[in-house]
């Protein structure tokens, strides 16, 4: 397999790479579950996390993954750096590359920034979320979790519910699942789900139609009020219109569907309390698999600093 330097989005990966990363994640998980074991794969390498947007989960998940592979991890704190003094992304990267980093894990509010950085440096660049564009490590952990739960992805139906318009998770996860043979549909407020002509996916705006489609997985997106400066929907209606209420949970349980969510969850908005305790709620599994998937991703990439 051709060595790959960066992971920027799902679209640029070949099918064989998607499978190779998912398959290696199975081995990574076995090692991960053997307590405290550190793999040698990235020993002596340096990994830098560069998060221009606040994040706790994704960042610690990547840091943990790098640790478990034996790498040395540095955290670049944007809030206290020269970035707030107006330094351009190019200049920040030049500075960081003089510090000899092998991997840069980046999150930014602007779509396309990781690609700009990747073109500009020899380190392997991993996109940990850019604007509404892509969040490929989330897509790997989601696909891994569904495959683990159901045994396979082919033919599975996944409905992604919520703010599709602003969601990089929706874009990456839907693309990943489709390429692995699953079917994906979108549901959400009319103002937040782009038309089928743009997405190529079925679009629902109410639960009856969603249930009629007979999904295997109900995938809820976080209502991201922090990204929205003009209201897109009447906030008071969201739970009743698009959330998993107790009534809907009964039907979900009766039909043995799974519930997923990229976190952090807004209880009482995307789902009711009881849904978090539902036997097929895979949210915690997703968090654990996040570390696994990120180990597999780090392991898959080859920085040019090593060639």
């Amino acid at each position: 397999m051709q060595p790959r330097k960066d992971l920027l989005d799902i679209a640029s990966l070949r099918d064989e790479e998607l499978r190779a990363i998912l398959d290696s994640a199975v081995e990574m998980k076995a090692a991960f579950l053997r307590d405290g074991e550190q793999l040698p794969n990235l020993r002596g390498r340096s990994v830098l996390t560069l998060f221009y947007e606040p994040s706790t989960r994704t960042r610690s998940s990547f840091e943990l993954a790098a640790h478990r592979l034996g790498a040395h991890v540095t955290t670049f704190t944007v809030g206290t750096s020269s970035v707030v003094k107006g330094e351009s992304v190019h200049d920040t990267i030049d500075t960081l590359m003089s510090m000899k980093q092998d991997y840069i894990i980046v999150r930014h509010k602007n779509s396309g920034i990781p690609a700009v950085i990747a073109r500009h440096c020899k380190a392997a660049v991993i996109n940990a979320g850019d604007g509404a564009h892509a969040h490929p490590s989330q897509a790997f952990l989601d696909a891994f979790t569904i495959r683990e739960h159901f045994g396979s992805l082919a033919g599975r139906r996944v409905i992604i519910i919520g703010d599709i318009l602003h969601s990089r998770v929706a874009r990456s996860t839907s693309l990943m699942l489709k390429r692995l043979g699953a079917e994906v549909a979108y549901m959400g407020p009319g103002s937040l789900v782009p038309p089928t002509a743009h997405t190529g996916l079925p679009r629902f705006t109410h639960w009856d139609a969603a249930f009629d489609w007979q999904p295997d997985v109900i995938y809820l997106l976080r209502v991201q009020n922090e990204r929205i400066d003009t209201p897109f929907f009447p906030a008071a209606d969201y739970h009743q219109a698009f959330g998993i209420t107790e009534e809907r949970l009964q039907r979900i349980a009766a039909e043995n569907m799974a519930i997923m969510h990229p976190g952090p969850v807004n209880r009482g908005v995307e789902l009711c309390d009881a849904a978090m305790d539902y036997r097929n709620c895979l949210v915690c599994q997703q968090v654990q698999n996040g570390v696994i998937a990120r180990m597999a991703i780090l392991n898959h990439l080859t920085p040019q600093t090593l060639r």
């Binding site: 396309g112 850019d130 509404a132 892509a134 874009r171 002509a197 743009h198």
Partner: peptide, 17 residues
């Protein structure tokens, strides 16, 4: 405001408004 291209399949794919 806050937009940078035509809405359509390309804008959706690239995550641009």
């Amino acid at each position: 405001r806050n937009t940078c291209m035509n809405p359509g399949p390309t804008a959706y794919r690239l995550g641009l408004h």
